[in-house]
Simulated assay, not measured.
Amino acid sequence: MSSQRLTGLLCAVAGATVVSAFALRAKRRGAGVEATGAITRALNARDHGAPARSTLLPAPRPSGVQTHIEAARRFNHSSALLALSVLADSAMEHYRGSFDNPAMYTPLVSATLSLLAGLHGGRDDRQETHQLRHAIYLAAAVAGIAGTGFHFYNVTKRPGAWSWNNLFHAAPVGAPMALLLSGALGAVAEQLRDQPAHDPRLLGMPAGRALGLLVSAGLIGTVGEVALLHFRGAFQHRAMYAPIVVPPLAAALLAQAALAVPRERWLTRLWLRVTTALGFVGAGFHVRGIARRQGGWRNWSQNLFSGPPLPAPPSFSALALAGLAALRLRESET
């Protein structure tokens, strides 16, 4: 190839490159002008009182709707976790009791329905009560109250009635209250959905306050049952003091946040998260307690019934998660 032809080819390539660069720059400048025009039109529409429809970002959902519906969904999740704990615990304990009374099947059915309702409600963002879920939650609460009565009767009919031996080895008095709490958490979640976004209220008070007080009471009741069982175990491990120290402080902080003027409560949020972790860590300790019994997990069919109750500790996690939802709602109230 001659030098003249090579020079001409290089010039042609260079010219094409320059033309392409100018074309790309013009195209980008045109896109920038179109974006600037869209923003300008949106600002002008806002200034003239018309609704601004930006083609760049989707319109955000109202923050009030997000807050109280999200709180309701979290309460549905907490109810489901608590129902799962009740289902596993009652299935084991009532199986050990050979289902002597047909009523012993009731908590299994009720807890299963409450679990399914909680999972369904946790994915539902509707702003109205789901009537079937609400009925299931109310039935679970009634079953919890009836179960508490049955367990009281089981203690009193034994020789010695209200004695330490009967409280330790008869039907656990506080266990059915977990089913009552599961139903209560789910029921208030459904009622919360019917409330106006700008001012949700329950029981004649701001919803965040009512939910915070409910969760605080639930934590205190759960602590009472755990304290009795760990006292029966003679607090053989120092970690057994944790569930009777950490949750009461969380309940006190949450109650104080519910009753005081709404504001940011970082310490309450931190302690509720510690309580959430405590429930899962406690389940790990119970796994270890079962493994340390004679035969360990190889003898699971016996040690699951005679060892520490494996499904019990996550109830703290369920209530603490509900407390976090109540706290978030309370902080948004005025």
Score class of each variant (00 low, 15 high):
Leu192Trp: 05
Arg193His: 03
Arg193Lys: 14
Arg193Gly: 03
Gln195Gly: 01
Ala197Ile: 11
His198Leu: 07
His198Cys: 08
Pro200Glu: 01
Arg201Lys: 07
Arg201Thr: 14
Arg201Pro: 08
Leu202Ala: 12
Leu202Tyr: 05
Leu202Val: 10
Leu203Pro: 04
Leu203Glu: 10
Gly204Ser: 06
Gly204Tyr: 10
Met205Glu: 14
Met205Cys: 11
Ala207Gln: 07
Ala207Glu: 03
Gly208Phe: 07
Gly208His: 04
Arg209Pro: 08
Ala210Tyr: 02
Leu211Ala: 07
Gly212Pro: 03
Gly212Lys: 00
Leu213Gln: 09
Leu214Thr: 02
Ser216Val: 00
Ala217Arg: 01
Ala217Trp: 04
Leu219Trp: 04
Leu219His: 04
Val226Trp: 12
Ala227Met: 14
Ala227Val: 15
Ala227Phe: 08
Ala227Gly: 12
Ala227Glu: 06
Leu229Ala: 12
Phe231His: 05
Phe231Asp: 10
Phe231Leu: 11
Phe231Pro: 00
Ala234Met: 11
Ala234Cys: 05
Phe235Ile: 06
Phe235Val: 09
Gln236Trp: 10
Gln236Leu: 10
His237Asp: 14
Arg238Ser: 12
Arg238Pro: 09
Arg238Ile: 13
Ala239Lys: 00
Met240Ile: 13
Tyr241Pro: 05
Tyr241Met: 06
Ala242Thr: 04
Ile244Phe: 02
Ile244Ser: 05
Val245Ala: 14
Val245Arg: 10
Ala250Cys: 14
Ala251Leu: 11
Ala252Gln: 02
Gln256Lys: 11
Gln256Val: 06
Ala257Asp: 04
Leu259Ser: 09
Leu259Met: 14
Ala260Gly: 12
Val261Ser: 15
Arg263Trp: 05
Arg263Ile: 02
Glu264Arg: 13
Arg265Gly: 00
Arg265Gln: 14
Arg265Asn: 11
Trp266Cys: 09
Thr268Asn: 07
Arg269Ala: 12
Leu270Asn: 12
